[in-house]
Amino acid sequence: MSTQSPELVRAVDALRAMVDASVKQGLEKLPAERELADRLTVSRNMVRRGLEILEGEGLIARSQGRGGGAFITAVTESAPVSPTLFDAHERKLERDLNAIKGIPQMLAEQGFVATTRVLSESVESASNGIATALGLRDGAPVISLLRLRLADGKPLSLERMFLDAELFPDLLDHSPIGSLYALLQSQYGVTVATAEEQVEVVEVSRQVARLLDLKPWSPVLALRRVSRRDDGTPVEASIDLFRPELTRLIVRTVVGEH
């Protein structure tokens, strides 16, 4: 240990403490290297060297590839579904699927610093899927909004929204667009009343991975949404891609009488 730098000694001691705490909580895996580096305020290379030392001591076992990471060897075999899943170990955006709110509003309400990067705002021809969702003919002009959402400076989600260009003329004159729903209500008298969302896990391309600060082909949460007015008229069709390790989906269900 005397040949190790003070920074490495500090990192190893901190990692050992994290392993001890994880064992007590029944956690089987340490966070990803990027998160460990942020927590310990050291470089990822220093974290990697520290993990190598812990692996040599038999405290962890590392594996590569999707689903890999640093697994804690001392954790005893637990129930198939651990009750520790109810413990809030990490701070995440709670994406309420029962509420029609924009991401900036959700982030602000939950104490995050919300930032939006507008990547593109344009008019294009609707694909078959978007035309069907908005009740338009194939190739009809639609407004396309591509935005990157950040929480506390970290990329959180990439969203692409589509709206009927004929229904909302001159919408892009208000660029950059902040709260879309507020703009639709104030400028066009359109209020979103309902929204249907479908959630699935997809793998991201290299371009999307670069924007979300992920490895290519990483899994993300994909939310496809169609929002409507009271009369059922489609207002917006969108696709939101969320980093799963930063997002928690919330659904509230009312159980009827039996």
Score class of each variant (00 low, 15 high):
Val254Cys: 02
Ser5Gln: 09
Ile177Ala: 01
Ala108Met: 09
Lys154Tyr: 09
Trp217Cys: 09
Gln198Leu: 11
Asp38Glu: 15
Glu7Ser: 12
Ala99Thr: 07
Glu109Asn: 07
Glu166Leu: 14
Pro169Met: 02
His258Lys: 12
Gly67Glu: 11
His258Ser: 13
Val75Ser: 10
Ala74Arg: 11
Gly139Gln: 08
Ser157Pro: 05
Ala17Glu: 15
Val19Glu: 11
Arg137Gln: 14
Ser179Pro: 03
Gly50Thr: 08
Thr132Val: 07
Ser227Met: 06
Ala74Phe: 01
Pro169Thr: 00
Leu223His: 02
Ser78Cys: 09
Trp217Asn: 14
Gly50Arg: 09
Asp231His: 01
Pro141Ala: 05
Pro141Gly: 08
Ala61Ile: 00
Glu159Asn: 15
Glu52Cys: 03
Lys29Val: 15
Pro141Tyr: 07
Leu180Trp: 01
Ala108Tyr: 04
Ala108Val: 08
Gly189Asp: 06
Leu36Asp: 09
Ser63Ile: 01
Gln187Trp: 02
Leu119Lys: 02
Ala99Leu: 13
Ala70Glu: 00
Ala79Cys: 06
Leu93Tyr: 10
Gly232Ser: 04
Gly69Met: 01
Ala17Leu: 13
Ser5Ile: 01
Gln185Pro: 00
Pro234Ile: 04
Gly129Leu: 12
Leu85Gln: 13
Ala140Gly: 06
Ser63Glu: 11
Ala151Lys: 06
Gly232Ile: 00
Ala140Lys: 05
Val251Trp: 10
Ser120Val: 00
Val42Leu: 11
Ser82Thr: 10
Leu167Cys: 13
Leu27His: 10
Thr253Phe: 11
Glu57Met: 13
Gln187Met: 10
Val226Thr: 08
Val23Gly: 09
Gly232Arg: 02
Leu107Cys: 11
Ile239Ala: 10
Gly129Ile: 09
Leu93Asn: 10
Trp217Glu: 15
Arg117Ile: 12
Val235Arg: 09
Glu166Thr: 12
Gly135Asp: 04
Ala17Tyr: 05
Ala108Phe: 06
Asp152Ile: 07
Arg229Ile: 00
Thr3Arg: 12
Arg228Ala: 10
Gln105Ser: 15
Glu245Asp: 15
Gly67Ser: 10
Arg206Ala: 14
Glu121Ile: 04
Ser238Tyr: 06
Gly135Val: 00
Tyr188Val: 01
Glu197Cys: 03
Thr132Asp: 15
His174Asp: 11
Pro31Ile: 07
Asp152Thr: 04
Glu57Ala: 14
Gly65Asp: 08
Leu36Ile: 05
Glu236Ile: 00
Glu200Met: 05
Val118Ala: 05
Val220Ser: 02
Pro104Leu: 04
Phe112Arg: 03
Glu55Asp: 02
Val204Trp: 04
Leu221Glu: 00
Pro155Arg: 08
Pro6His: 10
Thr194Arg: 12
Gln187Tyr: 02
Thr191Gln: 14
Tyr181Val: 04
Thr116Ile: 13
Asp38Gly: 12
Ile130Asn: 04
Glu33His: 11
Pro31Glu: 12
Arg48Lys: 13
Ile53Met: 10
Leu171Cys: 07
Ala74Lys: 08
Leu136Asp: 03
Ser78Gly: 15
Val9Phe: 09
Arg210Trp: 03
Glu52Asp: 14
Arg66Cys: 01
Met161Phe: 12
Asp152Arg: 09
Pro80Lys: 07
Val192Leu: 11
Val251Glu: 14
Ser238Glu: 10
Val12Gly: 07
Val113Asn: 06
Ser122Arg: 15
Gly111Lys: 06
Met106Leu: 14
Pro169Leu: 01
Glu109Arg: 06
Arg117Met: 12
Arg137Asn: 14
Asn128Trp: 05
Lys24Gly: 04
